[in-house]
Design a protein around this nucleic acid. Structure first.
Lengths: 179, 179
DNA sequence: ATTATAATAGTCAGGATTGACTATTTAAGG
DNA sequence: CCTTAAATAGTCAATCCTGACTATTATAAT
């Protein structure tokens, strides 16, 4: 349910937009932190219009076909505040697909395949961390002051968890290797 | 999509069961690691029966009303292996609702409310960690050898990520306080 | 000038999840 | 013995998410 928040927030920050534009904004600004697909955006735009949180008008620009451009209503503005508050209170719960694999590990014949898979995951994760660090440096150099500290918090959040995951993979590979 | 895996795995490990029994098994054995609701279980039992992964028979025990008891088929057994393998290769991706709050932080009026919410989250998380440690000790004392090391990996996995989250909350609270 | 490729802008059907609800049976307390 | 609470066993409607698909326009390459 993060999608409505991102849509409302981006409409407030960057003004009226159509669905594809919202997706572009998400891709350019929060791709590292939120994975939202285009159909999900259109779905919520429709739902939120039904609820009166956004309004839509047809618009034609240049040679492009007509598009529905969405705008934040005052009800949508209130909803944005409400969601922001409710998200502040939502507790973090971790769930990992790999846990299920380990829970049923005795049903898998050989250990070597899993160890290989885990090693692949670990190097993928390291690449992801390197990429994140690169993006962090870019953001860091384009911003300053209070806003910069807050933007860096998002990177820190993900880096902490990805490092935790790497460290756990180390442990898991060790345990599997000696079993 | 972890639910089919848990259902198939628990059917293999504990034999034919009806939906409610599967939920009990999940609640008793993996409640710390997977959050699966009863309707989700029934939904997947139905789907998997359509696909021939489980078979069902009506059964009456004692005074209880008739129930559909599900059993693993050989196709289900194969599917279990397949899911286990595919889950070994699925990469971890972190997503946090709080990130969206920080991304749109400038839309919230006061900082003090958020700081309070984060502090509540941190103490809830500490309680969760304490509870997890208690459960770990229980499991640890009931098991031994290889199986014990693997069971402890699941606890370690969650503890690492919950500690990462606590540590990030510390950082976030500090940044917000001085902003 | 023409073809190929990428970017733009969406739609739709199918699958997954769960809150809220119903109904029965057993256990506990007075 | 009777009432109440808890456990058992499940259903249904509403909601959310996304892979696969369609179609147009702009850009690049030949």
């Amino acid at each position: 349910m993060k999608t409505p928040l991102y849509i409302l927030g981006l409409l407030k920050r960057h003004g009226p937009q159509h669905g594809y534009q919202i997706r572009k904004n998400i891709a350019e600004r929060v791709a590292d932190f939120a994975y939202i697909k285009l159909p999900t955006i259109y779905y919520h735009l429709e739902q939120m219009e039904k609820k009166g949180l956004v309004s839509s008008t047809k618009s034609r620009e240049g040679n492009r076909p007509e598009r529905w451009v969405y705008d934040l209503t005052s009800a949508g503005e209130k909803e944005l505040q409400k969601i922001l508050r409710s998200f502040s209170g939502k507790e973090y719960r971790a769930e990992f697909d790999l846990d299920a694999v380990f829970f049923f590990l005795d049903f898998l014949p050989g250990r070597s395949q899993i160890i290989e898979a885990l090693e692949t995951q670990r190097s993928d994760l390291r690449a992801l961390l390197a990429n994140l660090a690169k993006h962090r440096r870019e953001v860091s150099s384009h911003m300053s002051g209070k806003a910069r500290s807050i933007a860096l918090l998002l990177f820190s959040h993900h880096e902490k968890h990805y490092r935790a995951e790497c460290s756990w993979l180390d442990e898991a590979i060790l345990v599997l290797a000696e079993a």
